[in-house]
Design a protein around this nucleic acid. Sequence first.
RNA 1: GCGUCGGUGGUAGAGUGGUCAAUUACAACAGACUGUAAAUCUGUCGCCUUCGGGCUACGUAGGUUCAAAUCCUACCCGACGCA
Length: 437
Amino acid sequence: MNIFNFKIEKKIPDFLGRAGVLTTPHGEILTPSFVVVGTKGTVKALTPEQTKDLGAQVVLANTYHLYLQPGDELVHEAGGLHKFMNWKGPMMTDSGGFQVFSLGVAYGKEISKVVSITDPSLLISERSSVNDGVPRLATIGNDGVSFRSHIDGSLHYITPEKSIEIQHNLGADIIFAFDECTSPTETETYQEEALSRTHAWAKRSLEKHLQLESKKAEDVANENRRCGRAPNPNDEVGISDFQEQYPSLLKPQALFGIVQGGRSEILRKKSAKVIGAMDFDGFGIGGSFAKEDMSNAVKWVNEILPEEKPRHLLGIGEPEDLFMGVENGVDLFDCVGPTRIARNGTLFTKNGKINILNAGFVKDFGVIDEGCECETCKNYTRAYLSHLFRAKEMLGAMLASIHNVYFINKLVSDMRQSILEDRFFEFKGEFLTGYLK
RNA sequence: GCGUCGGUGGUAGAGUGGUCAAUUACAACAGACUGUAAAUCUGUCGCCUUCGGGCUACGUAGGUUCAAAUCCUACCCGACGCA
């Protein structure tokens, strides 16, 4: 299935990279594209209007968080997440699979999305399927995952079916299969076990999704009859014509399957084959990576995944990683980085990141990033942002987020343009020379 | 003028004979942050160091003691009360 049209406009010669257009019921996404993260139905410190104006084409919210608060049923009652949060463009939701990891094995440890595999303290101690005594908020079973709410401690059980159900209630255009994100420090044996679980969950996610989609199609047909509209004989799902006519919640949703496999070439390729052969509308590439492994993993996977479907590298967003991903055939990226580091005082510039809290910026009346066209750079100085951060004024986080989101969207958009103009590697060289110094 | 209480590191404020270079918070300085447990977290925070330790420090100056930020005396400063 490929429910949303994905058109590849131009490829990077002899590489996997490409520029394309993905059409969703809420508009087009020009790829490659950076997906801004709005976990709880808000891009932190930005209004949806600002987010859009900063060049964001699509936002990603989170199943687990919205299920806990305010509850997916409430969001559904509100008319879906688009309407609830007033985001009119394309939207994605993550399945909660990452929280299996971040609230599970990674809980309380210094393990995150990108880790240094050389650090022995990160090694996961001997696994026991029962309870290894390590405190965590998520426990994995073969059928699903028990979560202890990080908000109030209450216990919840999420299965692939439950995740898909929640994501249908939320109503994003693109939703993800429920998966298990593993740490690269896990043993090969465990990676294999987790991978077969992820594959089984992918299948169950897909089945549940198709079931809910056909029910939605039925609802659409009924709605049609009720309103006296003639069903469209050329469109058995009855979807494309309804994009403008029907409320958000009756619009079709695309499901992306997620490839895992840790650091292993064999497992990554196996996963790409298995997931790639399933009837997904696109694919996510997941996992916690050792930085040095990332490009290999992406390449292995994208050589196998069907070329005509979009690919999303989950949770990656450092500028140098974006170049790596685009070069290796990734169409979509999401990352909390730009917004999180912004709130913590770090800003992107063409010459690398700066921490605006550093003493040198107190009396620096220059702009954050010379030549940047964002509202922050056009109107405020480094000294002013320095003051806002030191004074803990929330405008600091807002102005910094404006800059970082603009910067990263502009960067990916420039990459796209460079592909179209056949000068991707020139652009990459130019940018990284200044950025990585 | 008399009396009472008090003067501790950039700030606030613990400590009231040894375990005190001195709890804690804030500030300061730096670092981290990659499908958001995150407007968060970590480290440093008297001087010197061959990282073992050495030196100078709790208003000032003396004193008691093996040992004082802690006890005594005088002085300086502050708050309050009485004249």
